[in-house]
């Protein structure tokens, strides 16, 4: 597989690695905020997967200039999906952080093992 060919798949491997780093953080770390950070990395990886799909060789952003005749555009659909997914990620994050704040107030700690121990 020549180098350029290999280059084409690099995006997917980065997606795989970042996804696993995020998941590792969520599973492994016991601090609730670190879990949420892991979760946001985990979701960002998925965004990268979608946006890697939309690139077309030599294409530009899908904004149709009036005069220019035959332009090559990248695929707009994954971008729409990811616009939605980013805001979903932020919403879940905001809710999670609100819960962490409440947990800190009622339990005094945000380490998962101490919380489970407290009950």
């Amino acid at each position: 597989m020549k180098l350029l060919e290999l280059l084409g798949y690099y995006n997917y491997w980065v997606f795989a690695v970042v996804l696993t780093v995020g998941l590792y953080a969520v599973i492994r770390k016991r601090n609730l905020i670190k879990k949420l950070i892991g979760l946001s990395i985990f979701q960002s990886a998925v965004f990268l997967l979608y946006i890697t799909m939309d690139k077309v060789e030599g294409g530009t952003a899908p904004i149709i200039q009036k005069g220019v005749p035959d332009q090559v555009f990248s695929n707009p659909l994954p971008q729409v999906l990811i616009l939605t997914a980013i805001v979903v990620g932020v919403s879940t994050l905001a809710l999670g952080l609100a819960m962490v704040v409440r947990i800190k107030e009622s339990y005094g700690t945000i380490e998962e093992h101490e919380i489970l121990g407290a009950d």
């Binding site: 998941l23 979701q43 339990y107």
Partner: peptide, 19 residues
């Protein structure tokens, strides 16, 4: 007060499921 850690775990697992 135990509702909060329970729902936090549900949030984490639910979001991973959805993703």
């Amino acid at each position: 007060r135990r509702a909060l850690p329970a729902v936090f775990k549900y949030l984490i697992m639910g979001t991973i499921g959805a993703t």
